[in-house]
Design a protein around this nucleic acid. Structure first.
Lengths: 150, 150
DNA sequence: GACTAGACAGGAATGATTCCTACATAGCAT
DNA sequence: ATGCTATGTAGGAATCATTCCTGTCTAGTC
């Protein structure tokens, strides 16, 4: 999704996010990239246009945008944090082999309820579903399980 | 759930997991603890009985048990890895304030299907649902959002 | 145009996890 | 039972994503 500069500006103002060149560049890079990039991937992308950009700025910006509700963090297993510029309610499909993450937007999946007996007094705000399996490209491949211990 | 030593031994043999004092101690500690402890919490628990225990052994054992299918890893946001000795299909309810994780076992939630149009050729093996909200004890409390950047 | 709270760059610090190595032992075969 | 060998263990070093720190800069406002 290609976002115009003024649309980004409008979103920042609407969410009371301070407008800086760096933040706009980072947000644009994230929204243009459907692959759920890591902080470091965004850093390297944005650095091409802003050679002085610091890694710290990327982390701070992602933190600020997340708090503002313009960005969400996606975590797969215990791997490096990934980010998603799509903040509409949706879920994810994750390949066990290559780690690819695909968005799943299905109204059917947005109506789940938890029985109050199970909720144990919890006030449930929402939920996240992670489907896992093998993507089209990796059906043949087997996950490389190599863990070293001694 | 209190597990007898011979039941643990049987499970290890059934899953071809090499039987050592350390592994039994770690597995017993995990199964007895419904709070989804971290590797370090398990380490400190087990260390009381086995003062020579190394942290590395805890990590290796959890890795081996996970590969054997006796243990699963639960990840909340980008926090420290947590472990669950309950490997039956179930989901989690997570408190945004205190981080408490509660198991949700609800047959209704185990029948989700994803439309093939959305699946994009994925071979879906399973899924995991994380409900998030405020637990009974934390309904009043507000999540402490304090992020420092400069 | 000047002020000030907040953002930026650069680098140091943190800390969970992994890697390395020498020693110990479980499980199997004899 | 005894010895063999692959695997596990203890301890400590190394890794590396993320956070913290500090001085400088700048967006937003008056």
């Amino acid at each position: 999704m290609k976002l115009s500069p003024w649309e980004i500006e409008a979103r920042f103002r609407r969410h009371a996010v301070r407008l800086t060149r760096q933040r706009v560049a980072i947000y644009a890079a994230l929204v243009n990239d459907a692959s759920h990039p890591t902080a470091d991937e965004l850093y390297r992308t944005v650095k091409r246009q802003h050679p002085m950009m610091s890694r710290n700025t990327v982390y701070c910006t992602l933190g600020a945008l997340r708090q503002a509700g313009l960005v969400q963090e996606v975590n797969v297993g215990h791997e490096v944090a990934r980010f998603d510029g799509n903040v509409t309610v949706h879920h994810h499909l994750i390949c066990r082999v290559c780690g690819r993450i695909v968005d799943v937007m299905d109204e059917e999946l947005n109506r789940l309820a938890i029985s109050s007996r199970q909720a144990e007094g919890f006030h449930v705000l929402g939920y996240r579903i992670e489907f896992y399996g093998y993507c089209a490209d990796c059906q043949q491949a087997r996950p490389d399980v190599l863990e070293h211990c001694g």
